[in-house]
Write a protein that binds this DNA or RNA. Structure first.
Ligand code: ZN
Ligand code: ZN
Ligand code: ZN
Ligand code: ZN
Lengths: 148, 148
DNA sequence: TTCGGGATGTTATACTATTACGGCTAAGTA
DNA sequence: TACTTAGCCGTAATAGTATAACATCCCGAA
């Protein structure tokens, strides 16, 4: 048994919160709180008000099962490969997908950069925008679609 | 004359937009759009609706005179020392101040980390939270204030 | 002069997030 | 058992952030 795998974390939350996680995990793009709220499947199991969604999201964030994409006000599932270090959220402007890329070394580098100006680093949030690998290889198609 | 110093950029925008910049620059903490909108001094020169503020902010963002702190929905003046590279926005949980710390080297490092998964990097946004130098040296006071 | 684009003013609306309050239930304890 | 407390959940209201849509004005090009 792993230290704190996804399953053991999910075991701690209510079925409804678990359901929220499943929706986020199965989505290929980040979901906003109101995307979740308006989802028929979540409506069906009793989510009626924003508060309920935000409560579930808070639990999942605290357990580090999901990340908030601050620049999109939306949430993505954690890739679960960076339990201790930070990650980079790479947002594709073309397809909208967000990759959660582990970046263990980066925290140390950032600490060096900020130096004594900011000795008490607690949370690190890195987001980048651009074009993902898939969309790059499909660039000709994208171009074609753009000019048409 | 510098390449594109603050003054030459400010020369391109309207007096009202310039005024918005001045308010952001003179604030020691980040300001939200509605903080600006509700400011008597900006009201006095004709800002009455959110749109006006957001238009001014967009111009300033485009000129890189200010940054948006995504995790706070607020805006800070750029330190103007990283014309080409990214910077780190360091948010102090204690005093609320945000430092704009140039981090030229970091873009290259991030590119290495994301590798081919994300070849088309365009924008890089790094925010961190913690305690700034000033607040760290005043830690004893902070503690005293906390327990009282 | 006439046209067009860009900046500005104004209203309305959409989107995101939190507060407040009340009920229910599980767990501890006298 | 009866009482208490704390956490989870439901519900309603509200606060906070951002954009859409449309009207007007001004200035420079043709
Ligand atoms: Zn992650
Ligand atoms: Zn893509
Ligand atoms: Zn800057
Ligand atoms: Zn501080």
């Amino acid at each position: 048994m792993q230290e704190t795998p996804k399953e053991s974390k999910l075991a701690k939350v209510s079925p409804k919160t678990r359901k929220v996680f499943e929706f986020i995990e199965s989505s290929k793009s980040p979901l906003g709180a109101y995307d979740l709220l308006n989802d028929q499947n979540l409506r069906a199991i009793g989510f009626k008000a924003p508060t309920q969604i935000y409560r579930a999201l808070k639990q999942l964030l605290d357990l580090r099962l999901i990340h908030k994409v601050e620049s999109l006000n939306a949430f993505v599932a954690c890739c679960k490969e960076h339990e201790k270090g930070p990650s980079i959220l790479a947002i594709c402007d073309n397809c909208g997908q967000v990759q959660d890329i582990p970046a263990e070394d980066l925290a140390a580098q950032v600490k060096r950069e900020v130096g004594k100006k900011f000795p008490g680093l607690k949370e690190l949030n890195i987001e980048l925008k651009g074009v993902c690998e898939d969309c790059t290889s499909e660039d000709s198609e994208v171009q074609a679609a753009t000019v048409s």
